[in-house]
Computed example of a mutant assay.
Amino acid sequence: MDPEAAAGRAGDVIDELSAAVVTDRSFLKTVMTGVLAGGHVLLEDVPGTGKTLAARSLAGALNLSFTRIQFTPDLLPADITGSNVFDESSGEFQFAEGPIFANVVLADEINRAPPKTQAALLEAMGEGQVSVDGETHQLPDPFIVIATQNPVEQEGTFGLPEAQRDRFIVKTSMGYPEFDGEMELIDRRAGRTESVPSVSAVADEATVRDLQAVPETITAERNVREYLVKLGRATREHRHVSVGVSPRGIQHLFEAGRAYATLQGREYLVPDDVKRIVDDVFPHRLVLTAEAEIEGIDAADVLEDVKGQVPVPAMEA
C-alpha cells in the first residue's frame, strides 16, 4: 500500500467515525495519526464529551476486537493483565487472560486508579506483551490503547506517572461541541431507537497492519530530522521546564510526523507536518517548574515559545 492509497483508506475510517462522533475532523485525524504510527492515544476531557464513544467507534470502524477497562481506586494490576487460575480438572494453573487482550483497549478514566495499577499498562504499551508470574504472554497485533482521563483538577484523580505519559504517542481532547454540534447530537438521537450510534466496518486487522507499515516508507531529509530533534532538545533548556521531552518523545514525534504525512498522501515528511503534530506529541511530556504554574503558564505556552525559537528549515524545490 502506498501513501496515497493509505490516505484514502484512513479517510474512509475518519468519514465513518464522523457519522457517529460529533467532533472536529482534526481530532479524528490526530487519533488516526496515533493509530498509523502504531502508538497509543491519550484523551483528556471532562465527562460526557464522547471520549468512550470515539474509542468504541474506532474499534468498530477498523473491525477490531474491543474491551473497556473502567479504572477505579480499587482496581488491581491482575484485573488488567489477567492471572493464573487453578484448573481442578487438570490439576495445573492456567492463565486466564485479562481485558488487556484485545486489539483496541479503552482504559477509561485511567487517572482514577493509583499509579501502581496504571503501571500495569507500561509493559503492554511498550512491548506488546504482559508478564505474569514469570511467564510472558503476547498481546494481539495490532494493539492500541486509548486512554481517557479527566482533568487533574477534578476530585478523585491521580496524576499519571511520567513514564506512563511518555508511552502515549499523542494526547488530544475533544472539547465541547459548538451549538450546531450539540443540536446534531439531539437530532441524531431523535432519529434512531438505540442510544449509541453504530458504525460500519471499513477495514480489518490486515488492513490496519498494512496502514501501519506505510509510515515506515516515508522519507525525511536530514534538515527535517534535525529540526524535530532541536525542538525536543529546546524543551529541556526552557526556563519554565523542569523535565523536558525524552529521547523517546523525540522518536515519537518522528513516528507521528511520518504518520501524519501518510494521512496527507505524501511520500516524504515536511516541516509543516512536524509543526502540526508536535502540539499533540510534546505537551503531555513536559513537567513545568513551580514558577510556571504561579505565572499561569502551561505546556502549550511553552511549546509555542519553543517553536518560535527553533528555526524552521527550508525545503529544496
Rank of each mutant, 00 (worst) to 15 (best):
M1P: 00
P3Y: 01
A7G: 01
G8F: 10
G8Q: 14
G11A: 10
D15M: 01
L17M: 15
A19N: 15
V22C: 07
D24I: 05
L28G: 06
T33K: 03
V35T: 01
E44T: 10
P47N: 09
T49G: 05
A54R: 00
G60Y: 05
I69Q: 06
Q70Y: 11
P73H: 11
D74C: 12
I80L: 07
G82V: 12
G82H: 08
V85S: 01
S89L: 15
G91V: 02
F93I: 04
A96K: 15
E97D: 09
E97K: 15
G98L: 06
P99G: 14
P99A: 15
N103W: 03
A107Y: 00
I110A: 03
N111C: 02
R112H: 05
A113Y: 05
P114I: 00
P114E: 04
K116R: 15
T117Q: 00
A120C: 04
A124R: 07
D141R: 15
A147E: 08
F158N: 04
R165Q: 12
D166S: 12
R167C: 07
V170M: 03
K171I: 06
T172L: 07
T172H: 00
T172G: 07
M174T: 04
Y176G: 03
P177Y: 05
E182S: 05
I186L: 14
I186A: 13
D187R: 14
R189K: 01
G191V: 02
V202P: 02
E205Y: 00
E205R: 13
V214I: 08
E216I: 00
T217N: 12
L228V: 08
H238D: 15
H240N: 09
H240L: 11
V243Y: 09
G249R: 09
L253W: 07
G257C: 10
Y260K: 04
V270H: 01
D272I: 00
D273W: 11
K275D: 10
R276M: 03
D279P: 00
D279T: 04
D279F: 09
V281T: 06
V281P: 05
V281H: 02
P283M: 04
A290S: 13
E293H: 14
I297H: 12
I297L: 14
A300H: 14
V302M: 06
V302A: 09
A314C: 01
